[in-house]
Simulated assay, not measured.
Amino acid sequence: MATQIVMDHTGDGRHFFDQTDPEGLARAERRFRKLTGQGFTAATRTPSGDLNIVRTFDPTADELFYPRLVGG
């Protein structure tokens, strides 16, 4: 089971999906495209704990989504 963690102003939301379920996989990919299209940065953690930016959906990765930073 893979997880997409979405960080926003309310904290974080977790979306779990089974990579072998076509419907769940399609929802996860749509979520990836929607969030990155809205300016969220998608990243995965390396085994050492560092973040690695990702630009394409990987159904086997646990992904973190960070909102665009806004200055002011």
Rank of each mutant, 00 (worst) to 15 (best):
N52W: 12
Y66C: 03
P59K: 12
Q38Y: 08
A61D: 10
D18L: 08
R31Y: 00
R68I: 06
T56H: 12
E63H: 08
R68S: 04
M7I: 11
T3R: 13
D8R: 02
L35S: 00
Q38G: 05
F32E: 07
D62G: 10
T10N: 15
T56D: 14
Y66L: 12
R14Q: 12
G39E: 00
F65T: 02
Q19R: 11
M1Y: 04
A28H: 03
S48C: 06
E23T: 15
L51F: 04
E63L: 13
D50Q: 10
I53N: 01
L64C: 05
G24L: 08
R14F: 06
T3G: 07
A61E: 05
G72Y: 09
D18G: 08
F17H: 12
T36Q: 03
T60E: 15
R33Q: 07
D8G: 09
R68F: 08
A26S: 15
D58T: 05
D12Y: 03
R45E: 14
G13H: 14
F17A: 12
R14K: 11
D62H: 09
L69W: 03
A61H: 08
M1T: 13
A28S: 07
G13R: 15
S48P: 01
R31P: 06
P59E: 11
A43D: 00
E23A: 15
M1G: 13
G24C: 04
F16M: 12
F40I: 08
A28E: 05
T46Y: 04
H9C: 01
R27Q: 13
A2W: 01
T44W: 05
P22Y: 06
L35A: 04
M7K: 04
G11V: 06
R31K: 10
E63M: 12
L64K: 08
G11F: 11
R68G: 02
G13E: 14
R27C: 03
Q38W: 06
T46H: 03
D8C: 00
Y66P: 00
L69Q: 14
E63D: 10
F65S: 06
L25E: 08
T41Y: 07
L64Y: 04
F17P: 08
T20M: 06
D50R: 13
D50C: 00
D58M: 07
T44R: 12
F40W: 10
H9V: 15
L69N: 06
A26E: 15
G11W: 13
P67K: 04
D18A: 14
V54T: 04
V6L: 14
F65L: 08
D18Y: 05
G39P: 00
M7T: 10
F17I: 09
E63R: 13
A43M: 12
I5F: 02
L69C: 11
T44F: 02
E23D: 15
V54I: 12
T60I: 06
